[in-house]
């Protein structure tokens, strides 16, 4: 029982990170019908920037942890969000009228560029968080082991997800985003500047991905330049699991995938946990590609 609860907690923690990353994929797909393959690398860059800021600048030791983390998140999210805007402008907007395969190739190109750029900048080795920058704080509650980082991740992810949900459902901007995801031309007829909406998505999506990257780096206490590839693929699986283009779906898909992965790791084999996740992706694509909550695509009226 203890194992189950522990793995459930681990699953929720890692799952909430997947959910936040998946939201980035799903929003871009919803509005542009494009899988932003570069999204995983933006996640990775977030992790690296978080590491660099906390450790290399000595911030980790200088400020109380809470403040340092908050500052870290804001700065990293902002920086990667700006990068997201640049990528949209340079790699995707010129191809708006090209066929979808061309845009996918461009996305892959950006992904390769960012991944290798990171490797050149930070080196190919794993970088680990030293103890002075990131204290290990653990508690035992009702027989369960809990770490500070788990609580931080769950809290931050929750805030981000609730924030995004409120934005999309309760604001005019959110309604405009949903309208743009349904039909660009009709959205334009409402007076919506579709180009601006797309830019906004490429600001928010990467910001979320970067936040998730920072959080995951803190959780595993290390960062490496292949993070984007592996976690990008897992988050992509989560987005598909929930239904691509579907925002609540991305959240549920992320959490569910995290839980399944950790339960698989705990009960089957830790070494095979990645394979387990990708098995799920394959089965999904074969059996139910529209995901649990269904794809959100334009419907014929």
């Amino acid at each position: 029982m203890a194992l189950f609860l522990e793995q459930l907690l681990n699953g929720l923690t890692v799952g909430s990170v997947y959910a936040v990353v998946a939201l980035g994929y799903t929003m871009v797909y919803g509005v542009l019908r494009l899988i932003n393959f570069a999204h995983g690398e933006l996640f990775m860059l977030g992790a690296y920037l978080g590491f660099t800021l906390l450790v290399a600048t000595g911030l980790g030791g200088a400020l109380p942890l809470g403040l340092a983390l908050l500052l870290l998140l804001l700065v990293v999210m902002g920086a990667v969000a700006l990068l997201g805007l640049v990528i949209e402008r340079v790699a995707y907007r010129p191809l708006r009228r090209a066929n979808r395969l061309t845009a996918v190739v461009s996305a892959l190109g950006v992904s390769i560029f960012l991944q290798n750029g990171a490797m050149l900048l930070w080196g190919p080795r794993y970088r680990a968080y030293p103890a002075w920058a990131l204290p290990e704080v653990r508690w035992t509650v009702a027989g369960l082991h809990l770490s500070l980082m788990q609580v931080v991740i769950l809290a931050v992810a929750l805030v981000l997800m609730v924030g995004l949900y409120l934005l999309i459902q309760k604001t005019m901007l959110g309604t405009a985003i949903r309208a743009t995801a349904i039909d660009h031309d009709t959205a334009r007829l409402m007076g919506i500047n579709v180009d601006r909406i797309i830019q906004f998505i490429f600001f928010i999506g990467p910001a979320l991905g970067a936040a998730a990257g920072v959080l995951l780096g803190l959780y595993y206490r290390q960062v490496h330049f292949t993070m984007g590839w592996i976690y990008g693929l897992k988050a992509f699986t989560a987005a598909i699991l929930g239904g691509i283009g579907n925002i609540p779906g991305a959240m549920i898909g992320g959490l569910l995938l995290g839980i399944l992965e950790m339960l698989g790791a705990g009960y089957l084999s830790a070494a095979w946990k990645d394979a387990f996740v990708f098995m799920i992706l394959i089965l999904l694509l074969i059996l139910r590609p529209t995901g649990l909550l269904g794809e959100r695509v334009a419907e014929k009226v």
């Binding site: 005019m172 309604t175 405009a176 949903r178 309208a179 349904i182 039909d183 031309d185 009709t186 959205a187 007829l189 409402m190 007076g191 919506i192 959100r296 419907e299 009226v301």
Partner: peptide, 28 residues
């Protein structure tokens, strides 16, 4: 200038009220 397109093109997964609100987007 407001254009009511051929085939109506209402946003099917949004409510009637949300559709109307979108019509008023420029005066939001």
């Amino acid at each position: 200038v407001a254009h009511v397109p051929e085939g109506r093109k209402v946003f099917p997964t949004l409510t009637v009220e949300e559709n109307l609100n979108l019509g008023g987007y420029t005066r939001r």
